[in-house]
Amino acid sequence: MADTNASPPGGAPPSDGGGAALPGNGWRKEYWKKNLRLMVALLIVWFAVSFGAGILFVEQLNEIVIGGFPLGFWFAQQGSIYTFILLILIYALRMDRLDDEYGVSERNDDGSRS
């Protein structure tokens, strides 16, 4: 496991240093901001498919019928669940990339993913 290492996070010397007041911690703000941006984007979709399509606009969408399913009804009983799975998949993949980019992914001593 990666956390067998003793030194505290952010203690490593900076190669892409941030502000002068917090030497070496600029990457932290950047990493966190990107994480939050991804999170908010995914949560907007989460809200749109469930509360939007499945509840607030369900009656309007029900006017459209596809494959026997009124569309609003389909979102409420099927589509929202598929979208939820997709959202978590996108989150997990994008966070893998972000962790690697900022060097905070969890690695074994030999550098393989733990």
Partner: peptide
């Protein structure tokens, strides 16, 4: 708790 690894690996950083 915001950063998965305990230590940052600078050699792999962008």
């Amino acid at each position: 708790i915001r950063y998965p690894a305990a230590t940052r690996r600078t050699e792999t950083s962008a």
